[in-house]
Amino acid sequence: MRPTTTTGDTLDKINLEHGAGGKLSHDLLRSVFSSRYGNEYLERAADKAIIKLTGRRLAFTTDAFVMSPRNVPGCSLGALSVFGTVNDLLTCGARPLYLSSSFVIEEGFPISELEEIARDMASAARRCDVKIVTGDTKVVERGKADGVFIVTSGIGEVLSKANVSGSNAAAGDSVIVTGSVGRHGIAVMLARGEFGVTAEVESDCRPLSSSLLPVLRKYGPFVHTLRDPTRGGLATTLNEIAMESGASINIDEGKVPIEPTVRAACDLLGLDPFYLACEGVMVLVVRSQAESSVVRELRRRGAPKSIAIGSVKRSPKGRVSMTTSVGGKRYLGMLRGVSLPRIC
């Protein structure tokens, strides 16, 4: 059922009235969102939810999602806005439970596309076993937003055995990645079609709950840090961990999984895969004695490319160094500015 105007006309485009808080707003919420997210919390009220907690450690996170184009191979904006927040909760060592979703929608945005986004979000939420329990929509005038922006927040319960933080990484620990890096960044860049390069690269966008939760339940005390290398890529994430822990990280370039198509696109465009966003990869820092067990568990639980790529050392403090695939040594710095293709 599409929302209708006060005169009963069915609408297929967002107009400013959809954001005014009146009937049209409610119709939009019900017809596009609530009907899809469907749960008891949403049925009570759309813009708040009361969740019972007692004596539990909670993780709470929020993230804004914009993507241009809104659909790239392997990833839609709707799916990303759920998986991104789910993965953020996982980095706290938490089991994701409840999400909110807020939309900033540009006047003129097709409701059919909004429905598509909501459909993607609903199926993403089911896949992650989370409920979208509250949300909001605002409509802005044409030209004031690029189609639609989505903000999701999430609450999760920290697993009893989990105690993860960037500062927990300690000398001697092993560094593990759960999949090949750079896919999302390349997929988005190629989908924009600005560079005249076509390659079959699918975004890695996916939730990591089914891989990480079993690891945390089984090996929780050995897992010191969990991070998702989204913006800024693997290099930036490793630098954050090094800075927060005051330790040094050394990785082996040759061990970091990079798909040949991603590598080829990077070579052509002058990009560095270590700085490209991932949306379905996690970095784990674990006690070295648990390294092989954790890698084995991850591989069994849907992350078959999981591999140890390096270790934490005492010095140089706060820095990341890399043994290159040809055996050279160099530093791996933070992302500077924006990852842009080479000019000449």
Partner: peptide, 14 residues
């Protein structure tokens, strides 16, 4: 591009 490649692969350290 040589400048970047030398640095990126750590060639000088070899």
């Amino acid at each position: 591009t040589h400048t970047v490649s030398l640095a990126k692969h750590g060639i000088r350290s070899l």
